[in-house]
Amino acid sequence: MHRRQFLIGATALVAVTALAGCTTGGMSVFTAEYGSVKDAGYQLPQIPIAKVPRKYHRQIVKYDTAEKAGTIIVDTNEKFLYYVMPEGRAMRYGIGVGREGFEWSGTARIAMKREWPTWTPPAEMIRRQPELAKWRGGQPGGLQNPLGARALYLFNARGDTGYRLHGTPEWNSIGHAMSSGCIRLINQDIIDLYNRAENGAKVIVV
């Protein structure tokens, strides 16, 4: 399936109805949660979080939406991912999104969750960047793996969309449009989201 075909027909409906939410300033900001972390034998480095705009630090915000708790809503324009919580709140994370030509929107479900996942570049990416051919069979998980410490795999009725919510070693990409379409989070944030999100959870990307 071509990425640009991902629920194009549903995009307009999603844009109007799915992100019926608004947010206010952080109720709790987790700026202190970006220190070095030992995880599954890997030592994640400390993030120089002072260099990341405060609005992209993980925080609980007031968030009004008709979507039920456990839903994930991705606002690609504002570069925020919201994990909907009870009582009109959400955990908000700063994200990096697809660069020009790789934007997308639609709805999906989390079908799989993986720790320190293997990354396999798609054929079209290898054509654009032939140096990635060495990973045609998959790049093992690790500190330099583009998927980072965790990945949540997005599927729809047609199967694997090819998109992921995943970590990244490139913390300075948060707040920017730099990816090939996937939604990337700081590794410390994707670990937090991974622990909250359930298989089958609804994901809305606007």
Rank of each mutant, 00 (worst) to 15 (best):
R4P: 07
Q5C: 06
L7M: 01
A12G: 02
G26N: 13
T31G: 11
E33A: 15
K38D: 15
I47N: 03
I47M: 09
K51P: 04
R54H: 11
K55W: 07
V61P: 01
V61H: 01
E67K: 14
K68E: 09
K68P: 04
A69H: 05
G70P: 01
D75E: 13
T76I: 12
E78P: 01
E78Q: 10
K79V: 11
F80A: 07
Y82C: 06
Y82K: 02
R89S: 10
Y93P: 03
G98Q: 04
F102T: 10
T107C: 06
A111E: 08
M112R: 06
R114W: 06
P122S: 08
A123D: 05
R127Y: 04
P130I: 01
E131G: 01
L132W: 03
K134Q: 07
W135P: 00
P140S: 12
L143R: 00
L143V: 07
P146S: 10
R150L: 09
A151Y: 04
R158N: 08
Y163C: 09
R164Q: 04
H166L: 01
E170P: 03
S173V: 08
S173T: 12
M178G: 04
I183K: 02
L185M: 12
I186Q: 00
E198V: 12
N199S: 12
A201V: 02
K202G: 07
V203H: 01
V205F: 00
V206R: 04
